[in-house]
Amino acid sequence: MPFPVAPYSTFPILLRSPLLRPGLTAAILATACAVLAQPAAADEKPLWEAGMGVGGLVMPDYRGSSQSRAYALPMPYFVYRGEFLKADRNGVRGTLLDTDRVELNISGAASLPVNSDKNDARQGMTDLKPTVEVGPSLDVNLWRTTDHRTKLDLRLPVRAAFTVESSPKSLGWVFSPRLNLDVEDVAGFNGWNLGLLAGPLFQSRRYNDYFYSVAPQYAAAGRPAYQAGGGYAGTQVLSSLSKRFKSTWVGAFVRWDTLKGAAFEDSPLVRRDQYLAAGLAVAWVLGESSKKVEWDY
Rank of each mutant, 00 (worst) to 15 (best):
T146C: 06
P177T: 07
S166K: 14
R81Y: 09
E165T: 08
V214N: 01
S242A: 11
V250E: 01
L20Y: 06
L19H: 00
F78Q: 01
V293G: 09
L138M: 14
I28D: 12
N115I: 05
A228W: 00
W173T: 11
Q203M: 13
A27M: 12
F245R: 02
V5G: 08
D88W: 11
L96P: 01
W192K: 02
T248D: 03
A252F: 07
A198N: 04
K129W: 09
V132F: 02
R244P: 00
I28M: 12
E133A: 15
F162E: 09
A34G: 11
F264C: 14
G199K: 09
P18L: 03
V132D: 02
N90H: 05
D139T: 13
V134M: 05
D296E: 12
R255I: 04
G51W: 01
T25V: 08
A40K: 11
N90S: 10
C33A: 15
G188P: 04
K86D: 01
S65K: 02
R69S: 13
A187P: 03
F175G: 13
G172L: 06
Y232F: 15
T163R: 10
W256K: 02
T99L: 10
Y8R: 09
M59I: 14
V164L: 11
T146L: 08
P113L: 01
Y297F: 08
T10W: 06
M125A: 07
S247E: 14
R63A: 06
Y62E: 03
L57N: 13
A70W: 01
A281V: 03
R69E: 11
A262R: 02
G172W: 10
S167A: 13
L197G: 15
G53A: 00
R155H: 09
R159K: 08
D127W: 02
D98L: 10
W192I: 10
L152H: 15
V174A: 05
W256Q: 01
S137P: 00
G279E: 01
R101Q: 14
A26W: 06
G172Q: 07
S107K: 13
D120M: 08
F78M: 06
P168A: 06
K129N: 12
S116I: 11
W143M: 14
L24D: 11
V35Q: 15
F3E: 05
Y210H: 03
G51A: 05
L201G: 03
T248M: 13
R223I: 03
G188M: 05
G251C: 04
L238E: 14
V114P: 02
V214S: 04
A121E: 07
F175P: 10
E44H: 04
R244S: 09
M52D: 03
A215L: 03
Y77W: 04
M75A: 15
P168L: 09
T248E: 08
A72W: 01
G55Y: 02
H148F: 06
T10V: 06
R89W: 11
K243H: 14
V35N: 13
V79Y: 05
F162N: 06
T131Y: 00
R244V: 07
V270E: 08
F245Q: 00
G108H: 00
L57F: 10
T95M: 12
Y275V: 12
P7G: 12
G172K: 07
A252V: 04
